[in-house]
Amino acid sequence: MSDPSNARDIDRSRMAVRDEVAIRIIGMNKWYGSFHVLRDIDLTVHVGERIVVCGPSGSGKSTLIRCINRLEEHQSGSIVVDGIELSSDLKNIDKVRSEVGMVFQHFNLFPHLTILENCTLAPIWVRKVSQKEAVETAMHFLEKVRIPEQALKYPGQLSGGQQQRVAIARALCMRPKIMLFDEPTSALDPEMIKEVLDTMIALAEDGMTMICVTHEMGFARQVANRVIFMDQGQIVEQNVPEAFFNSPQSERTRLFLSQILGH
């Protein structure tokens, strides 16, 4: 857990939440075979919102954000991302995916490509930008995550924290409107968690719409404007961080918080 007391001050000037809706999920259900993973999920995310999703393992939080860019298919209800409804139409799915960046627990960098190539590949092949422009964008974001000097190395030569920052830069190179983080710090050594969280905080300061599945409660307190607690495939409680941590309403939430903050 990163300790909020030693955190730097956050520049909140560009962190305003706007009225436009980025993601609207209505009555969404998902099953794996006969196992009901997500039950009647209703969630509206506004542009500029920073949402932290937490909950015990197996509660469906990863599945929820993986439904938002259709890495997982939902079986009923509707998901509208940036005005596009997710259906089996492949064109729509690719369109949504190019607007939604995703960062994975295990980074999933492409090991056969250099850091720079990892970052330029999708802009060149999906966004159809020129090679030169893609490289400029990539270097811009690599500087933003503070590893421009690693651009010509391969992912295998970088530390876990550096790889995860590259993964963030790679997603940003597509200039996404929404960023999804699927437990971005869970596979990292404690020393490296902070560098990734700092990158995510910087991203939040720029006003990015973010949904983060994470157990970094310090990050949630500092950056999130809403914390969602999930259990058994349902949203059990959601609130602003202050109220969520100080006076959780549900018994499940209280138990969960006491378990992860108790030590």
């Binding site: 890495l71 995916r97 995703m102 994975f104 492409f110 092949w125 999906v126």
Partner: peptide, 30 residues
């Protein structure tokens, strides 16, 4: 090939053939 490679290619919006050509096959052939 780890499943994450397919997911990363999908998440970046690469379609099936582009993902195969640029991400999957270079690694699989190797």
């Amino acid at each position: 090939l780890p499943k994450g490679q397919y997911e990363a290619a999908d998440a970046l919006g690469l379609d099936y053939w582009k993902a195969q050509r640029l991400i999957i096959m270079p690694q699989v052939l190797k």
